[in-house]
Design a protein around this nucleic acid. Structure first.
Lengths: 219, 219
DNA sequence: ATTAATTTTTAGACTAATCTAAATTTTATT
DNA sequence: AATAAAATTTAGATTAGTCTAAAAATTAAT
């Protein structure tokens, strides 16, 4: 049974909203994520349910079935591999890749993806630090925490972002924050939860909003 | 005005049928090329006409306008660049690329294509020997002729194929015929128009059908 | 130059995906 | 527990693309 591009996008949205497909997701949340109306979501969710991709009970929200989850993970895999390709091979910057990867992720060819994976050297993470599922759908997650949770005095290394918006990524670029960069938390300001960090030999004060969208690993 | 994937495919079909968009094309021919019904073609052609991509008079066939031709050439450019990518970077063989390139050709991103072009080293021809239009839509054509037209005793070099079907390309592979390979026409058989050729140090008799689908340049 | 065959177009219907507006169910609040 | 608010679903309409069957135009053949 053929899956359409739209169905694939709904499944992906449900996956992301449901934290890797484990939680139940509301109609409204999907509508917001997909930039569409709740009534459209209801229609589509019924269809996905008939096709066996989601579990759905009226008024009770949706969750992915195993087959739905497998589809979602495969789309995520394709999306992230293409992102690596765009950055590593075509010199895109990390704030330019999302839109294009949204299109590329729907290309259907098993061989294309396995060859691309090999061509890129079997990358484990995309340019935003998110893990790339392997061919069997396995995702190995690293133990990352938000920068906002790091204690004063601790050294850490930047491993990912929570928000992948152009604005946020360009802020990071401007301040020379990139994946792999070392940071030290100098001081936390309780009043507004801002944090003073040392990056390279420079000091920088970042807001709580920023610190809440940056993943690090304490070293 | 946004152009849909389907519209793009119709424009491409009209371009190919009309020999690079110069000739008028019939409704039935388009229907056959697109594997759809003539009535569907009429509907679509009306829409394309309203949008200014084709000139159309009832019962008189269709031809591309300048803007339609520009769209077609751009799709062709993308298709052929992706084919080069698949063969050169992802180790596809030339009989496996068409289907995937059919999907990739619709990805919309100016930067993607210009970067891909650069990444591939600005190739001038795709793996089937067809020329790749440049960014401005310019196509430089080489003076190729069909192998069936080569005189006895002449040496030539294989530069392209007319038919890109899997079956034909696999026949060529099997017989070690590839782009760039030198051939010599030993003898032409008038009875069935078959041709005896020398390829490397081997002799091979090929049918007229084969010779009519292989482009060469006399050297 | 009629008639026959073929091609093309029209008319009307169908599916996928969407929308608005109204109805229903659930959740929150008094 | 009753009512108000919010979320969700239904009903009915719309658009893009397609289809079948019938009508109209063109081309071919007698």
């Amino acid at each position: 049974m053929m899956i359409t591009l739209t169905e694939e996008n709904y499944i992906k949205a449900i996956y992301h909203l449901g934290k890797q497909g484990s939680t139940t997701v509301s109609t409204n949340a999907i509508a917001q994520e997909m930039d569409t109306k709740a009534s459209s979501v209801t229609d589509m969710v019924k269809k996905l349910s008939e096709k066996g991709y989601v579990d759905y009970k009226k008024y009770q929200g949706v969750s992915l079935t195993e087959s739905g989850k497998a589809i979602a993970i495969n789309v995520v895999r394709k999306h992230r591999l293409w992102e690596v390709f765009l950055v590593e091979k075509l010199n895109f910057s990390w704030d330019e890749i999302h839109e294009v990867a949204e299109q590329l992720e729907h290309i259907k060819s098993k061989k294309l993806i396995s060859q691309l994976d090999a061509f890129l050297g079997y990358p484990t993470h995309d340019p935003h630090g998110d893990p790339i599922p392997d061919e069997t759908g396995n995702i190995k997650k690293i133990d990352k925490i938000l920068l906002s949770e790091v204690k004063e005095g601790n050294d850490c290394i930047c491993v990912g972002v929570q928000d992948s918006s152009t604005e946020f990524l360009q802020y990071l670029d401007k301040n020379k924050i990139a994946l792999g960069v070392n940071l030290k938390v100098l001081q936390r300001e309780p009043f507004d939860n801002s944090i003073a960090i040392k990056i390279g030999d420079k000091e920088l004060v970042i807001s709580n909003l920023i610190a809440n969208n940056l993943y690090v690993k304490v070293s």
